[in-house]
């Protein structure tokens, strides 16, 4: 049965900042037991001047900024292509890195604790680990994208199991990006290259492949995803520059295009720089494009309020949906009914 869901745009968190208070290509977020939001900034390119932008920013729903940790590099506690962030039951913070093929672990304040992982295709080895999620026993599930499989580890990195292989048949993957655990214990995977979502049991048994949505609604190159207690799936439809909500029966419940306005941090800046602020607020940043853009991503490039490169979606248990709007350097927050 399909449940009616409505989503109302609430507000935006963050703005573009190369260092300090702000984000640079936020690709994922995680929320700990105290309501602290950890925002993972991938940034790039990997030139010396840009490396400081790679960091984890800590803030909360009201845009209080608590600092950041990490920097671009290859040493302990540093990031190259940080891809995903997850928090265990002890509020430890785990970051996967697709450039260094490893998982780094920090305490809740950002102090580096440990790292594990190595490049390869053997059991426990990694190739572009793109997504992380913990189960209730603190086992870590990981979308091992370059190896086209899912791997399960203990929280200290001991290999438990793996499933999947490259392909487009049921149970196979093509560069899987997102991974989420439902309260039911099922594992949901966004199979990026195959434009589909699959649901598995924790032992790797395929339960179902969600049917393709009708033309015009179908997901394309899905990225991060999450699942609520009713089994509704929230997926960053990266290839369509949208967020889609899909019911347990596979039907489309909602499609969000993004409707951001300036965050508090941005408003602070323009209050301090009123002439720039005046020009900005006089400008039409939601224009009708002429000529019409050929692709959704080009429309997103020209319309500031829309999602552009949405890579992750998270729920906070209080009906709020957070979208990592990676190319717009912000989180868009929605409230569901």
């Amino acid at each position: 049965m399909t449940t009616t869901k409505t989503f109302t745009y609430s507000h935006t968190i963050g703005f573009l900042a190369a260092t300090g208070r702000g984000f640079t290509n936020p690709v994922d977020l995680a929320i700990n037991s105290q309501g602290v939001i950890y925002v993972l900034n991938r940034a790039g390119p990997e030139t010396p001047i840009r490396l400081p932008s790679k960091r984890v920013t800590m803030c909360n729903l009201n845009e209080d900024w608590f600092g950041d940790f990490g920097v671009g590099g290859t040493g302990d506690g540093e990031f190259w292509w940080p891809s995903s962030i997850a928090i265990d039951s002890q509020d430890r913070v785990y970051v996967s890195d697709e450039g260094l093929q490893r998982i780094s672990v920090f305490d809740k304040d950002g102090t580096f604790l440990s790292k594990w992982g190595e490049k390869g295709s053997g059991a426990g080895q990694l190739e572009y680990p793109s997504s992380l999620a913990f189960d209730a026993e603190d086992n870590l599930y990981l979308a091992d994208s370059g190896n086209h499989r899912v791997q399960k580890f203990t929280s200290d990195g001991r290999f438990i199991s793996a499933w999947g292989q490259r392909g487009s048949d049921p149970g196979q993957f093509e560069g899987p990006w997102g991974l989420a655990l439902a309260g039911s214990g099922n594992v949901y995977i966004s199979d990026w290259g195959n434009d589909r979502i699959q649901r598995y049991a924790t032992d790797g048994r395929l339960i179902e492949e969600f049917p393709a949505l009708p033309e015009g609604q179908a997901i394309h190159r899905p990225a991060g995803l999450t699942v609520d207690d009713d089994g509704n799936i929230y997926v960053a439809d990266w290839g369509n520059e949208r967020v889609k909500i899909i019911g347990p029966d596979g039907s489309l419940l909602a499609s969000l295009r993004g409707e951001s306005v300036d965050s508090k941090w941005a408003a602070d800046y323009f209050e301090a720089n009123p002439e720039e602020g005046r020009l900005r607020y006089e400008a039409d940043l939601v224009p009708e494009l002429d000529p019409p853009a050929r692709r959704d991503r080009e429309i997103s490039a020209g319309v500031e309020s829309y999602f552009w490169g949405p890579t992750a979606v998270k729920l906070d248990g209080q009906g709020r949906l957070y979208v990592a709007d990676s190319l717009r350097h912000r989180l868009q927050v929605y409230q569901s009914n």
């Binding site: 703005f15 573009l16 951001s260 300036d262 965050s263 941090w265 941005a266 800046y269 323009f270 720089n273 720039e276 940043l285 224009p287 494009l289 002429d290 080009e298 490039a301 020209g302 319309v303 500031e304 552009w308 190319l327 717009r328 350097h329 912000r330």
Partner: peptide, 14 residues
């Protein structure tokens, strides 16, 4: 003044 584009750059339009 390439200072603050709060949401990154916006494509120019003719």
């Amino acid at each position: 003044r390439d200072s603050i584009w709060p949401s990154g750059r916006i494509d120019w339009q003719f």
